[in-house]
Design a binder for these strands. Structure first.
Length: 426
RNA sequence: GGAAGAGUGGCAGAGCUGGUUUAAUGCACUGGUCUUGAAAACCAGCGUGCGGCAACGUACCGGGGGUUCGAAUCCCUCCUCUUCCGCCA
């Protein structure tokens, strides 16, 4: 959520930046509506405070009058307060509806894209920030997609998941399970080495947490919801891990705050069927190691680069061909100011698979989180928040299986062997 | 799940027979005096949001609602914690 003060101060720049998201005048007028609603809110607040002030003053007087035994005067004052209360009730209800209006408008305004974000509408307009320098691997015609490899080596069973739960809930078996566990440990160890504090958070969160990171209200349908307890299954570790600092005021010297968490992630992912979603490409439950940082506004883009480097390092160690995209305005998520997608090439599917998304949210998320720091002048300012997947397991496994298939079996990359305890799946 | 007790500012802890409480006091923290430096002592400052150029006003004592001219204080409800019982990985 953008701050109204920022919309006021930089309205024209913001309008210009939002056109990169494909926004036209009819939507840009939301900015004016936000300012209008805020003006109204301020006026009502001033009015209401005045009434409250009078009420408080009168109430004190009544107390004194009673002590002095001046019953009649006290009763007269009571009548005045009665009048005041009617006014207060009226302005308060206006104030409440006005605040709701403002909030509604603000929730519809996405983050302002960073100056380096290319304009564009679809993923075709994304910019390749770093391409794979070598030739892409070419497998023989006998090469299989991961869903067939999974069956061949009995390491992953989608049909069994259907029996146990439903479509999109994979069941890993044997070496498939161990590969899964190995990757989790590998990713967590790498994050620890890079200075991230490891967190094991709850997998269910309350509505306050879901709201603070922006899942509510806009992405409510994406989350599994436990009605009886009013809790949500997390779609990513970002939600509980980021919320650790909800409402906190940290010291400037605490930056950067670096957290990592492995969790299973749950997504309802309504819609979207077909070849693209086959196998592990899109599932309802998957495993992911997330990295999160809270940073001083002046340093957040440096940090974003470091986080991308970290994820790159993982892909290099796994010996997977990858490229980095800078997302265009149209493909940029609602809350992000700048996002890099890391994609791994699947030689069998002959396409790039998104395995990580690393974003700087600037103050967009911290505004809802109310995550602030005290700067050197003693002023309270919103921190910048960043996060990225490091990494999502399902698609990495898909890519590993496909790219590393040989006639003897699937070869485990060197870096993982001490974790898996085997070097081939056959 | 059942019973009892409790939730106050970074921490500790008063207030809780409704009205100078503008939330006492201590610790911690920040600045200053003193000191070669430090400690101690002393002086001052020290929550957050909103409105206001400011003075200041206003809201917040777990969340929400109510009673009252007036609520940290009384009532209802929800949440959390502690202790005991039950159940259980």
């Amino acid at each position: 959520m953008l701050e109204v003060s920022r919309i006021r101060a930089q309205k024209e720049e913001i309008k210009a930046a939002l056109t990169k998201r494909g926004w036209t005048n009819d939507r840009l007028e939301l900015l004016d509506r936000a300012i209008e609603a805020d003006d109204k809110r301020k006026a009502l607040q001033t009015e209401n405070d005045g009434y409250l002030s009078q009420r408080n003053k009168l109430s004190k007087e009544i107390g004194n009058l009673f002590k002095q035994g001046k019953q009649e005067e006290a009763n007269a004052a009571k009548a005045q307060v009665e009048e005041m209360k009617t006014k207060i009730a009226a302005t308060e209800s206006q104030l409440a509806s006005c605040t709701t209006d403002l909030e509604t408008v603000l929730l519809d305004i996405p983050n302002i894209p960073h100056s380096s974000v290319p304009a564009g509408v679809t993923e075709d307009d994304n910019e390749v920030a770093k391409d794979w320098p070598q030739d892409l691997p070419i497998l023989g015609d006998e090469a299989l997609p991961h869903w067939d490899l999974a069956t061949k080596y009995n390491i992953l069973d989608m049909k069994l998941g259907v029996k146990l739960t439903g479509a999109g809930f994979p069941v890993f078996r044997g070496k498939g399970s161990r590969l899964q566990r190995a990757l989790i440990n590998f990713f967590l160890d790498e994050a620890s080495k890079a200075g991230y504090e490891e967190i094991v958070p709850p997998l269910l969160v309350n509505a306050d947490s879901a709201r603070a990171t922006g899942q509510l209200p806009d992405k409510e349908g994406q989350m599994y919801y436990v009605e009886k307890d009013d809790l949500y299954l997390i779609p990513t570790a970002e939600v509980p891990v980021t919320n650790i600092y909800r409402g906190n005021i940290v010291k400037e010297q605490d930056f950067p705050i670096k957290l990592t968490g492995y969790t299973q992630c749950f997504r309802r992912e309504a819609g979207s069927y077909g070849a693209d979603v086959k196998g592990l490409n899109r599932v309802h439950q998957f495993d992911k190691v997330e990295i999160v940082q809270f940073q001083h506004p002046d340093k957040s883009y440096e940090t974003l680069d470091q986080m991308v480097k970290h994820v790159e390092g993982l892909l290099q160690k796994l010996e997977l061909p990858y490229r980095i995209l800078r997302l265009c305005g149209g493909d940029l998520s609602f809350a992000s100011a700048l996002t890099y997608d890391l994609e791994v090439y699947s030689a069998a599917q002959k396409r790039w698979l998104e395995v990580s998304s690393v974003s700087n949210f600037e103050t967009f998320q911290s505004n809802r989180l109310k995550l602030r720091f005290t700067d050197s002048d003693g002023k309270k300012r919103l921190a910048h928040t960043l996060n990225g997947s490091a990494l999502a397991l399902a698609r990495i496994i898909a890519a590993l299986l496909e790219n590393n298939q040989t006639k003897d079996g699937i070869v485990i990359p060197e870096a993982l062997r001490s974790y898996t305890g085997f070097d081939i799946i056959d």
